[in-house]
Design a protein around this nucleic acid. Structure first.
Lengths: 347, 347
DNA sequence: TTGTACGCGTTATCAT
DNA sequence: ATGATAACGCGTACAA
């Protein structure tokens, strides 16, 4: 391991001069700087992050608190990590993947107590998540992908459910549909406060009403079987439904199967929207489903950037001011499951 | 940040004694140790990883080199990361997610030059991957998830394609099928040396032959459309095919659509196997596909453990010996796409 | 403009 | 068994 000392020796300057020359932290004669830079290049010098961090109290390492993969945990959730890692690298930071154990709060205290990370990125934030309070109390910079019920002054980036629902409703209404049903994601017992489910449900209902569409909600199938069954129930009470948005991949598969069983077709008899899933997954269905794809990697990227802003704000005086908030709509990817309703068609 | 010095003062001992008491690195009187431990607990002391790493030359941080998510990059690949992160945490290590840039080799030199990580975990290893050589030359401990053409003495964990193919063939043959076709994964131009595709292709052919089954290979559809087209071509030359294994999710979707177009059914007219995909994805198809699911998280876990063994082997004298190698078969998850062939059925 | 000296928090070495 | 002290590699006052 070649150290700054080696570089200094080779350039015939003091270590502090070498440091200054490379970091530009104080005026250095042009000639000297060049000697140092050349020496550093020749030796392939890399500053030791540990030593630098020990001294400067900043490691340029961020932690992403990663929940244990539950069911319903898909590709999109995982892309938070890749997006965040990329954005971090672009700004000279590193991302630590911190899997959450049984006791997330203890995990949090652990990872922050080590002095290893400059800040923490939270994902899968529950409406009543306790982690923000712990972090705030500990004085650790953090940002959220997702948000609590009242994010207040906390930096966060989340899906813009209102805009997403509006776009979905506009798409459906534009095709001529008059009644929209929505199958929400099943809430795990412990995750009753799952933000996306709550917000999406609320916003779809609101958007439909504002667009003058009849709306049917309340279903939360968690499997293909449940999806098919929910759909049949729905037809029992609302045989005039012609459009359905589903927020669960498996439930959508069940709906497709149910439609086929009934001898009907998509999209002729039903316009089907897949909500919060990747176009990659939607493309595996037959027909290819119209999708509202969350900008997962982008959420991760922006979350990381917010956190870095916050971390640097402490010293550099940037972004010192108010909280950073950002809401991103899903992208509507129109597939082969969207079509105008049949004239006077009923189930 | 409460430091060891604070603990020492509170326990009225020297810093070195406090260190020894907590780490058991040298004999300490029971009473003294208890005083130190109590002081540490009361102060909520956490050793500073940076300082420890600076001194001991070991950071207990591993880097997972993460390729830029290409197409064909799915949930299973991402589970390497979560598995590795979990295993690392269980053994007191941390996992750094290192996205690969345009120049992977430079990336490698960068991440290893920082003195930040004790070792590197490689994934998506190409048959002629250059990274192992770079790491070996740099003297950086590493392990691979996947393997090069000749892994030689390099620690690695990979899918056992031979056993996987045998299990698939046995399943199909056990149902009474006499002819098996295999649609391999499309190879990206730059990834001509993609191990899983090469090995799976070879092993399926071998396993079929050894089981006395006729075999048709050579197809590499990369999309749903291509999958459907490939299937129709296949039927043109081999109308007696009754079983098909597909290693690409989208291609499988295309095959399902093509079967429906032809007015035939799965599994009655075709037994369809999805290879190297998650049961979660397979469950979204209709019918639910029989799957050969790779043990992705387990691969990640074992890879991380191997790496940790290797890293610690340097000092502790463990695992000093030969290379660690481990091959894990995929898990056969029988779905609704498997059935005996129709009597005398032809396409 | 440059060099010297100290400290970050820890472990390791050497006395005691 | 314990305490003082020297590193680890770097940044940063302060002195020159």
């Amino acid at each position: 391991m070649t150290s700054l000392r080696d570089v200094a020796e080779r350039a015939r300057v003091a270590v502090s001069t070498a440091s200054a020359a490379l970091n530009g932290t104080r005026p250095v004669a042009a000639a000297t700087r060049r000697r140092v830079e050349r020496a550093a290049a020749e030796l392939g010098y890399r500053p030791n992050l540990l030593a630098r961090g020990l001294q400067s109290k900043r490691t340029r390492i961020l932690a992403l608190l990663f929940p244990a993969p539950r069911s319903g945990f898909g590709l999109t959730e995982m892309q938070f990590a890749t997006g965040a890692a990329e954005a971090a690298r672009e700004r000279g930071y590193h991302l630590l993947l911190s899997p959450e154990s049984a006791d997330p709060l203890e995990e949090l205290r652990h990872i922050t107590g080590l002095g290893l990370v400059d800040g923490v990125l939270l994902m899968e934030v529950g409406l009543d998540d306790e982690r923000p309070a712990v972090l705030a109390a500990a004085g650790v910079p953090f940002a959220m992908i997702g948000r609590t019920r009242e994010p207040g002054g906390i930096d966060h980036v989340d899906i813009d459910f209102a805009a997403t629902a509006e776009e979905a409703v506009a798409h459906v209404a534009g095709l001529g549909h008059r009644k929209l049903a929505f199958f929400n994601r099943a809430v795990d017992a412990h995750a009753a406060g799952y933000g996306p489910a709550v917000r999406a449900g609320r916003e779809f209902e609101r958007a439909a009403r504002e667009a003058g569409l009849a709306y049917v909600g309340g279903y939360r199938p968690r499997s293909a079987e449940a999806g098919g069954k929910a759909f049949e129930e729905l037809l029992g009470t609302h045989p005039d439904v012609t459009a359905l948005a589903v927020m669960d991949d498996h439930a959508a598969a069940g709906v497709i199967a149910a439609v086929a069983r009934l001898g009907r077709r998509i999209p002729e008899d039903l316009t089907l929207l897949l909500v919060l899933s990747s176009a990659r997954v939607a493309g595996m269905f037959h027909p290819r489903l119209t999708t509202l794809e969350p900008p997962s990697a982008e959420l991760g990227r922006i979350g990381a950037r917010m956190l870095i802003n916050r971390v640097q704000g402490g010293t550099k005086g940037e972004t010192q001011g108010g909280p950073q908030r950002r809401l991103l709509p899903c992208r509507l990817v129109v597939g082969d499951s969207s079509a105008p309703p049949r004239e006077g068609g009923r189930w």
